[in-house]
């Protein structure tokens, strides 16, 4: 690890190939990423999520054009779903980004989610890190069309935009419980359509309901004192804006880009450090879980494993008991001969 934090000067070819390596767990690519981790952290990473058809790609394209006119370089990681049956995918977000293809200050990469849940791919965070190290000022992550629980993007992005559109059925209901909670900026796109005003007011009402709990989060008894809370979140308080856009026309897009910049300022004033710490803690935990599981699966005898599954199938054993039994056996094995 060098102490150098300057961006790397990749050619687009090198960067594209590095990303392919990251997507495929290529050890060279992952080693390179580890070497360059110190150079990441200067890009502003913005997640854009929302229901299919809400206009995420068009909005990202419009935001990118606007950011370019303000002199920023932009990378876009656009995630679409893989077929659970064949593993294949059609990645079609570029269709709405055609005027950006030849801009030298823009890098667009389509990613299949490779059946990961949560709206992004398992390697999306590392792909974003590579783009960050390459020096792009602004990185958009466009998730797969998201419903209620696709909140993984909040683990990777610093600023999350949830895009809503009028006329998508019971759309506001759909986001109430899940992705609304990870939004830093709410956008009602296709604002020229009927129902836009209503969508805005329903979202605003939902936010107003949620707001008091932010201010009093520190006063809910003992547990709250020990909870990891962003102190600035309650004192300065980020007010989640609800903005209207017509992305196809560029209407309202400047206001969204302004809100993105304001949110970054807000993060830099203190809230960001806390969020970053929480994100990295989650990141390490998730990777630890993956490594532990991988190690466990290497150590467990396949015959023993299948015997326990059979017992579950015969309903002689609850799956939790089977898992606990495997863990106990692993612990005994570890006691006898520590694994390398």
């Amino acid at each position: 690890m060098t102490g150098d934090t300057r961006p790397l000067h990749f050619t687009k070819r090198d960067l594209a190939r590095l990303i392919t390596g990251i997507e495929n767990d290529d050890p060279h690519a992952l080693r390179a990423l580890r070497e360059w981790y110190g150079r990441t952290g200067s890009a502003h990473i913005v997640g854009v999520t929302g229901a299919p058809g809400s206009g995420k790609s068009t909005l990202v394209a419009a935001l990118t054009r606007m950011a370019r006119s303000r002199g920023q370089t932009v990378a876009i990681v656009s995630v679409d779903p893989s077929s659970p049956f064949t593993g294949g995918a059609i990645l079609g977000d570029r269709i709405r980004m055609r005027e950006l293809f030849e801009d030298d200050g823009v890098f667009i990469r389509s990613m299949a989610n490779r059946s990961a849940l949560g709206g992004i791919a398992r390697s999306t965070a590392d792909v974003v890190a590579a783009l960050d190290a390459a020096g792009y000022d602004l990185i958009f992550i466009e998730t797969v069309g998201a419903g209620q629980a696709e909140v993984e993007v909040a683990r990777v992005a610093e600023t999350v935009i949830v895009v809503e559109a009028p006329g998508l059925g019971d759309d506001v209901q759909a986001i109430k419980a899940g992705i609304l909670e990870v939004a830093d900026i709410l956008v009602v796109n296709k604002a020229d359509r009927e129902g836009a005003e209503r969508a805005v007011s329903v979202l605003q009402a939902a936010l107003d309901l949620a707001a008091p709990s932010v201010g009093t989060a520190g006063h809910h008894g003992y547990g709250a004192l020990h909870r990891v809370e962003a102190p600035t979140a309650s004192s300065t308080g980020w007010r989640i804006p609800v903005l209207k856009t017509i992305a196809t026309e560029g209407d309202g897009v400047a206001a969204v880009l302004d809100a993105i910049a304001r949110h970054r300022q807000y993060l830099e004033q203190g809230a960001g450090a806390q969020r970053r710490a929480q994100r990295l803690e989650q990141e390490v935990t998730i990777r630890l879980r993956d490594l532990l599981l991988k190690r466990a699966m290497q150590q467990i005898e396949p015959t023993r494993y299948h015997a326990l599954i059979e017992a579950c199938i015969a309903r002689k054993l609850h799956p939790q008991e089977a898992a606990q039994e495997l863990l106990n056996e692993l612990a005994r094995d570890d006691g006898r001969a520590p694994a390398g």
Binding site: K12, R13, A16, S82, S83, T86, G87, G88, A89, I90, L91, G92, R94, I95, R98, F101, E102, F107, I108, R109, S110, A112
Partner: peptide
């Protein structure tokens, strides 16, 4: 897609320059 490939589909009216740029980045 059904053969398990990841297909980047860029749509209509592409110039050779747009096609080459997409091929490069993807």
């Amino acid at each position: 897609r059904d053969a398990g490939m990841e297909v980047i589909y860029t749509g209509l009216r592409q110039t050779p320059e747009m096609i080459a740029a997409a091929a490069l980045q993807e």
